[in-house]
């Protein structure tokens, strides 16, 4: 099987879905001829007829708001917002518009839109306004599905499902993972939204890890092999969240670490921990440990960034600090 970067796997998914369904179009700033700020849409402007790949002004609210309107009127737009940090400019369009229409308008309307945006950036020293992981904000919005792209293989399959989904989906890529390469099947495949992936089976501790933290956790699990047996789970989507797989693993190992690059306070990792503690309480040897960013903006200078953003050491410490029988 050929290896592909996450960037190219996402590009493949976009190309395949746009070939498959004429009602799709791409819209965003620089997505056309420039090929996107992270070169994810490169080549699509030439591949598709005029009008299918739409370059816009720097207008996040109009990009997402127009996608909501287009979604209601027979289109299946795929919008790109360059950084998750910029989603604040379009938050109303998700929170009060796209996410609500199906429910608020009585159930018959669908708003089949995908908003691709980009978490991460601390590792690129992108500083406080270009580095946040903000999927937690959108988990808080009823009617909205939230997907996290972590591996090339999953990115392609998840994005295809997101595009075909009849609900608004916010699809979070990760700036520091675009160059990651892994095997990606040439054939078309989808990964359902709401199915976690057990990347590695283990007996002593479950690590639930997303995006860049997933790679840190994978390295740690490998290093600890023989000493501590780690079960590594990538939730892949945080709404819907595959609680069943997480709880089953927690019951087996009795110890859980959740690692996610968001702010911990009221964040995705805290929510995942809460669900596991609710449903696997009597099987746990210890409270679920959460690894994330502790109520601090992402700073610029490399040593400051390293102090704030968790890495493999933080995950290893959390694992080692778990009480063991």
């Amino acid at each position: 099987m050929p290896e592909k970067s996450m960037r190219n796997a996402i590009n493949d998914a976009l190309s395949e879905e746009m070939q498959r369904d004429d009602s799709t179009y791409l819209i965003g700033q620089d997505v056309g001829e420039p090929g996107g700020s992270f070169a994810v849409t490169r080549g699509l402007y030439d591949e598709f007829e005029e009008g299918r790949v739409i370059d816009t002004p720097i207008s996040e609210a109009a990009i997402v708001g127009s996608s909501a309107g287009a979604g209601m009127t027979g289109s299946r737009p795929i919008a790109e917002i360059m950084y998750a940090d910029f989603m604040g400019l379009a938050a109303d369009q998700v929170m009060n518009q796209a996410g609500l229409f199906k429910y608020m308008f009585g159930g018959d309307v669908t708003v089949p839109i995908t908003i691709r945006t980009v978490n991460g950036g601390p590792g690129a020293n992108a500083a406080a306004q270009h580095s946040k992981s903000l999927h937690g904000l959108f988990m808080h919005m009823p009617g909205v599905r939230v997907v996290l792209a972590s591996t090339p293989h999953d990115s392609k399959g998840l994005l295809k499902s997101a595009i075909r989904c009849d609900d608004p989906v916010v699809f979070f890529e990760h700036m520091e993972l675009y160059n990651r390469e892994a095997e990606v099947p040439e054939k078309s495949y989808k990964i359902p939204l709401g199915e976690a992936d057990v990347e590695r089976e283990g007996d002593d501790v479950t690590v639930v890890a997303t995006q860049k933290m997933f790679y840190h956790a994978r390295d740690v699990a490998e290093q600890l092999a023989g000493e501590i047996s780690v079960e590594l789970i990538n939730p892949r989507t945080v709404k819907p969240l595959d609680t069943e797989t997480l709880v089953e693993s927690a019951k087996k190992t009795g110890r859980v670490v959740v690692a996610d690059e968001s702010v911990v306070q009221n964040g995705p990792a805290s929510y995942i921990a809460e669900r596991i503690q609710q449903e696997a309480f009597y099987h746990l040897e210890a409270p679920v440990e959460v690894v994330g960013v502790d109520d601090t903006p992402i700073p610029f200078s490399p040593p400051l960034t390293e102090a704030v953003v968790p890495d493999d050491e933080d995950i290893e410490t959390a694992i080692r600090d778990m009480p063991r029988v």
Binding site: S23, Y25, I27, G51, R52, I54, A61, A62, V64, G65, S66, S67, A68, G69, A70, G71, M72, T73, G74, S75, P77, D92, Q93, N96, Q97, F101, M104, F105, D108, V109
Partner: peptide
Amino acid sequence: VDQGMLGANGIVGAGPSLAVGAGLSIQQN
């Protein structure tokens, strides 16, 4: 929506961006 009424809206200024989306659908098709 079947009658072309894309919604009253409690957020001031929300309608125009939805209208732009409807315009894009019309143009696309």
